[in-house]
């Protein structure tokens, strides 16, 4: 809104221009997509869909990962460990649990605990984030939800692009990382996370 008339005191108001612009906006708003346009868009989309997937997408060297954002960093996890994703709602905090355990949620009648990887990895807090998505992972008898800021989607990653973790990444996080892609997506090791004893809260200990 840089064309406020009163911000331009001293200049004459070009009412013709304003009328023309209003008219253009009105026309643009009231414009329905014509059938030809609609058909063209659909055709374009169909052509895009009908395109052959990238070569090697289905080969063994590729790794299907689910990408999500957490604390402004992209994380990925192998699809084989992912059961589903769901929005975070009706979180029930549980007292007397470690800080990384946020609470419990009810997913279609199933009670699933939700952990916060940031706390688990002792990442420094970098401001508040959305944290309104949950990636439910399971492996063996272990099922829990990982809190995420946003689910980016599923995408294949070529195995050769995965590099070992950086030497700078030290501490507890190093144990749970499988590698890092060229796009700097951190691939989590689902097996280790799911089988880590530290993640299991045992009252008796």
């Amino acid at each position: 809104m840089t064309h406020t008339p009163f911000a331009q005191s001293g200049k004459t108001i070009d009412w013709n221009d304003i009328h023309q612009r209003l008219e253009a906006a009105r026309v643009a708003l009231s414009q329905e997509l014509s059938p030809e346009e609609e058909k063209r868009i659909l055709k374009t989309r169909a052509a895009a869909l009908a395109r052959e997937p990238l070569s090697g997408e289905t080969t063994e060297g590729h790794l299907e990962i689910l990408e999500f954002l957490l604390a402004y960093e992209r994380y990925g996890i192998e699809m084989s460990w992912v059961r589903e994703t769901c929005p975070l709602k009706d979180l029930t905090p549980i007292p007397c649990t470690p800080a990384f355990v946020l609470g419990l949620i009810n997913v279609r009648g199933e009670i699933i605990s939700v952990i916060d990887l940031k706390k688990f990895f002792d990442l420094p807090e970098k401001g508040l984030t959305d944290l309104n998505k949950v990636v439910i992972v399971h492996g063996g008898d272990m099922t829990f939800g990982i809190l995420a800021d946003e689910i980016l989607g599923v995408r294949p990653v070529p195995g050769e692009t995965i590099q070992p973790t950086l030497p700078t990444l030290t501490g507890i996080r190093e144990e749970y990382l499988k590698g890092i892609t060229g796009e700097r997506t951190i691939i989590l090791d689902g097996n280790r996370i799911l089988n880590d004893r530290r993640i299991i809260v045992n009252d008796e200990e």
Binding site: V82, C86, G153, V154
Partner: peptide, 16 residues
């Protein structure tokens, strides 16, 4: 849209 996104992701997971 968010929900659709999640649904799509879940669908992908299911497909996988």
């Amino acid at each position: 849209a968010e929900q659709s996104n999640l649904l799509a992701v879940n669908a992908s997971i299911e497909a996988a």
